[in-house]
């Protein structure tokens, strides 16, 4: 019988430090997955942690060094092996939103799962309408996939805008290079600076605190709740709905993020208490 807890051993094909805290890994793995799904990543001896897939072309993860497993992962280099299980979770409804306009809203490390959406959309560009990408960062140093994103700014495919909190010389230079693309403030300020179509589908990922602000902003602007999707984070230990660490909500409306999520709509947020 298939043992869901048994990790598959995969080789690390490539690594790169993205920022002083985040490291990117390309894994030598064949996986059938959807943007927004996550993997349980193992480093034998350090343990296991849920990490979302940050790619669509191949299997890549972007890991922030915060705990035991992530620190151990950071020690791993090209050619080393790690364990993976999954993919788990529902993922974003990419098929259902075909033909629609999209706005992707990422905050900090929330960039990782949204990069998977972005790559998917770019791969299937014709299937989607206008694509806007809002990315909120603290400072340029914390910007993930910087080269890729700056390259994207030069193209017409995606309307990419960055909100930053701390301005420095480099940002000032980038502002000159890409006028109207860098804005000071939180990610929500981009909704004021950039004209958006409120009939768009919106895909959000960021730290827990960000959802409240983003949802509030979108409600003010008149977006449709059923068109807003977000991906949530919890401490999923099993990924299969057993360990119950990721329970949200109360009573019969409660959900397990690993099984019923991690992607939920703003309608779910209304029905499931404390989802965001």
């Amino acid at each position: 019988m298939e043992n869901e807890f048994l990790p598959r051993r995969v080789r690390i094909e490539e690594t790169k430090m993205m920022t002083s805290l985040e490291k990117w890994f390309k894994l030598d793995a064949q996986l059938d997955f959807k943007p927004g799904q996550f993997l349980e990543i193992s480093v034998a001896g350090a343990g296991e942690a849920p990490i979302s897939i940050c790619s669509w072309n191949g299997v890549e993860i972007c890991v922030r060094k915060v705990g035991r497993v992530s620190s151990a992962l950071h020690q791993r280099e090209k050619g080393d092996f790690i364990g993976i299980r999954g993919p788990y979770g529902n993922g974003f409804p990419m098929k259902e939103i075909e033909g629609e306009k999209l706005i992707l809203v990422a905050g900090g490390l929330g960039m990782a799962p949204l990069r998977s959406v972005l790559q998917y959309v770019l791969k299937n560009r014709k299937k989607y309408g206008e694509v806007t990408f809002f990315y909120g960062i603290k400072c340029l140093e914390m910007m993930l996939f910087r080269d890729e994103l700056l390259k994207l700014m030069e193209e017409e495919n995606v309307n990419l805008h960055i909100a930053y909190e701390i301005e420095d010389e480099e940002i000032r230079n980038l502002k000159k290079r890409f006028p109207e693309r860098f804005h000071k403030g939180m990610v929500t300020t981009l909704f004021e600076k950039v004209k958006v179509n409120t009939e768009s589908f919106v895909v959000v990922c960021g730290p827990p605190i960000m959802y409240k602000f983003v949802l509030k902003k979108m409600e003010e602007l008149g977006f449709y709740k059923e068109r807003i999707y977000m991906t949530l984070e919890r401490r999923m230990k099993c990924g299969t709905g057993k360990c119950r660490h990721c329970v949200v909500g109360i009573g019969s409306s409660s959900k397990l993020i690993c099984r019923d999520g991690p992607v939920f709509s703003a309608i779910d947020a209304e029905l499931i208490r404390e989802l965001v």
Binding site: A46, G67, R68, A72
Partner: peptide, 10 residues
């Protein structure tokens, strides 16, 4: 053991 392996202890 964790320290010698380079891991953060529990």
């Amino acid at each position: 053991r964790f320290l010698l392996r380079g891991f953060i202890p529990l």
